[in-house]
Design a protein around this nucleic acid. Structure first.
Length: 340
DNA sequence: ATTTAGGTACTTACCGGTTG
DNA sequence: CAACCGGTAAGTACCTAAAT
């Protein structure tokens, strides 16, 4: 859910669908690799109300601009394919370690409700970019972003920033402060003063509606990936019921040295065994039943590798998104070599 | 995958209101 | 008055969605 400040420079000229794709990818990514696994075009299209061509245009566009690398995955029957999309230069591989490097790299937290809101989605691409920049700048200065009016227009209208006229910038400012209420923007003594509106950026507390930890998004994405690969239809309710099983059974599997996510994938897969490809519908109850059975038939000790991974992340293994048996370093190399 | 019709974003230009 | 703000409108450049 983190977008490093240093990536913002690349975002001044992305199209709106590219910006949406990037935000979507970061929101569903594993922070430690900066990668979203199993990205499926239909999920993107549903969430942003775009046609499938937009997904591909955005994907190719982001790659061409050096912002992401991607890799295509097909299932065994070649009936579905999804993508692992890595946001370049956006990994936090030292999470949990004492590396100074990790702490010093600032980021915009895309988990914030603002960046999931319909208001943000309906902004223009450059307004979205500006919102990210203002978020960064108002944090770095502590008391908000202050910039002389003349210099402000001079800088932001430059090609390397927004590349639009002063008049257009003013309309962006209006949208961000008056239409969306994201920022408080005013001019005093010849200076623009921009601060984040706390009421807009406040995150829901635990237990409140809309509250999500970063790893909740990984979990949900993991389940979606498994469902997509088996062509299983689902709705919001059956999906959330299934995702919930990860929390319900996480500890029980961890006690046996196993990662619940690997087993929920199996439980999902066997829940549609014998059902025709086109007629598969998610039944959380069946998945639950299968998962329970898998747990009961498991020996008490598992291979130590899994256990090690689970405990090292410090967050119940949520960050460890090794959903496949690939060698991690090999994936990294493939992804990074495929770009420039 | 490529083409195309329709839609959106942006620029330019103008206007009236507000501020100092 | 001068400088600035926010609104509208027309033309065009570019983008998206859907057809081919």
């Amino acid at each position: 859910m983190k977008l490093k400040y240093k990536l913002l420079d690349k975002l001044h000229n992305v199209s709106n669908s590219e910006m949406d794709l990037l935000v979507w990818v970061v929101q569903h990514s594993d922070e430690r690799s900066g990668t979203m696994y199993g990205a499926y075009y239909r999920n993107y299209c549903d969430e942003y109300g775009r046609c499938k061509q937009s997904f591909y245009n955005a994907l190719y566009g982001l790659k061409q601009k050096g912002i992401v690398a991607y890799r295509r995955n097909r299932n065994d029957a070649c009936t579905t394919s999804d993508y692992d999309i890595t946001v370049l230069d956006n990994a936090y591989p030292w999470k949990g370690s004492k590396e100074v490097t990790y702490r010093n790299e600032g980021y915009v937290d895309l988990a914030n409700p603002v960046f999931r809101s319909q208001e943000f989605k309906s902004l223009k691409a450059k307004e979205k970019y500006l919102a990210l920049e203002f978020r960064k700048r108002s944090f770095e200065t502590g008391k908000g972003y202050k910039h002389g009016v003349k210099a402000f227009y001079e800088m932001w209208s430059r090609e390397a920033y927004l590349g639009v006229s002063e008049r257009t910038i003013r309309s962006y400012m209006h949208t961000l402060s008056k239409v969306c209420n994201f920022f408080s923007i005013g001019i005093k003594d010849g200076f623009y003063r921009i601060t984040s509106r706390i009421s807009s950026f406040r995150k829901p507390q635990k237990g409140q509606y809309g509250h999500k930890y970063d790893q909740d998004m990984y979990n949900e994405q993991y389940v979606r990936m498994a469902l997509n690969r088996d062509n299983i239809k689902y709705n919001a309710e059956s999906l959330s019921d299934t995702v919930h099983l990860i929390y319900q059974y996480g500890a029980a599997f961890a006690n046996k040295g196993a990662d619940v996510k690997r087993y929920i994938e199996k439980a999902i897969h066997s829940s549609v065994a014998g059902t025709k490809w086109r007629e598969r519908e998610l039944s959380a109850a069946t998945v639950h039943y299968n998962l329970k059975a898998l747990l009961q038939h498991m020996p008490d000790t598992q291979d130590q590798d899994n256990k090690k991974v689970n405990t090292s992340s410090g967050e119940k293994g949520f960050n460890n998104f090794n959903q496949r048996d690939y060698d991690w370093n090999e994936i990294e190399n493939l992804l990074f070599n495929s770009t420039i």
